[in-house]
């Protein structure tokens, strides 16, 4: 498998309190990779490290085959970046920002830019400093899409946008990806949003990558099981036991959160003398919450 973004033992420290890594991130080429994590987990820092905007203490980054930061200019010719906060010059008008961006990108698509300007209902003569948050978000997405990148790196692109604008931005993104087959690396803490569009997911927590799996495996693999009469020692289960908690009431029922569950694994419970009462599918958000919870608490505590 070839990777659009690949980090090796990437490490970074900001002050005394925040440490990131060692991080081994693998974003498959052509994937829409959702980069999940709570606020302050290190998503933006990771993105900035991947783009050479921050210098890592240790480790390496390759983006589209380019070593970062040494080959960052060549990399940026093929990467569209939407940062968390607008990085555009506030004294320029929308039209001037398009002209400036287009002048630096050889693959700039004037027609696509004009179409997106209409789709997003942006006024060319408006100064960027006067744009609303939603309009700024749309302009950033427009600039990133019209440069026809091979990789889009989107850092919380819809954060703080109203539902209508969010839908517009995501629709434009999906249209572009379906046309071009580009790789998308999109960070968000809005789990439901990523669930709809991503085929890979990576989860950050406290500067560590706690999971990196295909979306279907993430969604299907994490289950909540209701188990009765389970012994104190679970033995060697065929799945990953993420959490084990006492259920409601005094019936001796427990709730197990597991990863890697398959229907054939029911036999395991017969083997340990327990009764599997129920298997509950978790949606991405529940799975995400369970994953973070179990990543933070030592198993069995």
């Amino acid at each position: 498998m070839s990777y659009a973004i690949e980090t090796q033992e990437l490490q970074y420290r900001a002050g005394r309190t925040f440490e990131l890594g060692p991080l081994n991130l693998h974003v498959p080429a052509g994937a829409i990779y959702g980069f999940l994590g709570p606020n302050g987990s290190g998503k933006t820092t990771t993105i900035r490290l991947c783009l050479g905007l921050l210098r890592a203490e240790r480790g390496g980054v390759r983006v589209l085959g380019h070593d970062v930061p040494s080959q960052a200019p060549a990399m940026f010719a093929r990467v569209g970046y939407v940062p968390e906060r607008s990085h555009l010059y506030p004294n320029l008008t929308v039209r001037e920002a398009l002209a400036l961006h287009g002048a630096f990108h050889r693959r700039w698509d004037h027609q696509a830019a004009a179409e997106l300007l209409g789709t997003f209902q942006l006024q060319g003569d408006t100064r960027i400093g006067r744009l609303s948050k939603g309009e700024n978000g749309k302009l950033l997405m427009l600039l990133a899409l019209a440069q026809r990148p091979d990789l889009l790196v989107l850092d919380e692109p819809t954060d703080g946008l109203d539902p209508v604008v969010r839908r517009d931005v995501l629709m434009a993104l999906i249209d572009f990806v379906s046309e071009s087959g580009a790789t998308v690396f999109i960070s968000s803490h809005l789990v439901h949003e990523l669930e709809r569009i991503c085929d890979w997911v990576g989860v950050m927590d406290r500067g560590r990558l706690v999971a990196e799996v295909p979306m279907h495996s993430f969604k299907n693999g994490i289950k909540r099981l209701r188990v009765r009469n389970a012994p104190a020692q679970a033995g060697d289960p065929p799945f990953v036991l993420l959490a084990r908690e006492r259920g409601d009431g005094a019936s001796g029922t427990e709730v197990w959160v597991v990863r890697g569950w398959q229907a054939t694994m029911r036999q395991y419970f017969e083997g340990i003398g327990a009764v599997l009462q129920d298997v509950v599918d978790l949606d991405l958000e529940e799975g995400f919450v369970e994953l973070l919870r179990t990543a933070r608490v030592p198993r069995g505590s």
Binding site: P73, A74, F76, H87
Partner: peptide
């Protein structure tokens, strides 16, 4: 004002 982020993400050294 833009903390140099825009300039640093342009495809030029």
């Amino acid at each position: 004002q833009a903390e140099h982020v825009y300039a640093l993400t342009l495809p030029v050294p």
